[in-house]
């Protein structure tokens, strides 16, 4: 259905302008000479220099990165297992509770998740720091992973697994040699999602952490509460740049792969 009209062009332009202008302004003013973020005073990269010299930020970035790597990896393992259980295991004791616990964190307000985890950590006397943030992030991001992976598993041709069994695989081998390689793209995007969720999270990390560990979002939040600062603009620009490069690369790669596969299928059908 391609009946493009001026109305569609206008609504797309307004919509995307609304989405992107704030970020573009943010990026432009990260190169501003002046301390005053809203007045242009010439091009400069000095805020990037100051940012890189700011140890508190670098420490926070390092903590955030470690937390994100650990929690997203754990979340991917647990979430994939959960998805497999949800899609493949028929009935088992407490299945409804299980699927409820998978979906609930997706709609649970962050303040509640954070509060409840903090109360747990205090209750069992766990010292709050990197470990508790990892635990907290793993818990909510495994649910996202499980949703991504289970939607892939739902469309997975079950006869592929049966074929593997038929050809002599045990069910563990069938998973390792057939299912996992085929659903790998979904598992990887689940990991990436968990990783970004962990990098972004402010509220849950604020509850789950103690004085020993500060993540980047916590640091940014406490800085911007006092107002706009050019250093934060510089930091934001770096983060936006990384994400943009990543997303564009990923979509180009997947588009190339799709085009190549289509061509090959076309050639195969003609031969």
């Amino acid at each position: 259905m391609s009946r493009f009209s001026w109305f569609n062009a206008v609504s797309l332009t307004i919509g995307f302008a609304f989405l992107y202008i704030p970020m573009i302004i943010l990026i432009i003013f990260s190169f501003n000479e002046s301390k005053l973020v809203t007045v242009w005073a010439g091009f400069s990269t000095k805020w990037y220099g100051e940012l890189l010299a700011n140890e508190a930020f670098l420490d926070a970035a390092w903590v955030t990165l470690r937390v994100a790597v650990f929690s997203s990896t754990l979340a991917t393992i647990l979430g994939t297992a959960a998805a497999y259980v949800l899609i493949r295991s028929g009935r088992f004791f407490g299945r409804t509770l299980f699927s409820g616990m998978i979906y609930a964190p997706l709609v649970m307000p962050e303040v509640i998740t954070g509060l409840s985890l903090l109360l747990l950590f205090i209750g069992i006397g766990l010292e709050r720091g990197v470990l508790t943030i990892v635990l907290a992030h793993t818990t909510f991001s495994m649910c996202y992973v499980s949703v991504v992976v289970s939607s892939r598993l739902a469309t997975f041709d079950k006869s592929l697994e049966e074929a593997a069994l038929d050809l002599g695989c045990s069910s563990a081998q069938a998973f390792r040699l057939v299912t996992l390689p085929i659903i790998a793209p979904a598992v990887i995007s689940g990991w990436l999602l968990a990783f970004t969720l962990s990098l972004d999270d402010l509220v849950i990390a604020s509850f789950a952490t103690g004085p020993s560990a500060t993540t980047l979002p916590i640091k940014i939040f406490s800085a911007v509460r006092l107002g706009v600062s050019p250093e934060i603009n510089a930091l934001s620009t770096i983060m936006i740049a990384i994400v943009t490069v990543g997303v564009i690369t990923a979509s180009l790669l997947s588009k190339r792969k799709l085009v190549r596969e289509r061509e090959e299928e076309f050639m195969a059908a003609r031969s």
Binding site: P22, M23, T196, L202, I232, S236
Partner: peptide, 10 residues
């Protein structure tokens, strides 16, 4: 994929 916090901050 872009930080929520940064987008609000913008």
């Amino acid at each position: 994929w872009t930080s929520f916090l940064i987008r609000v901050y913008a």
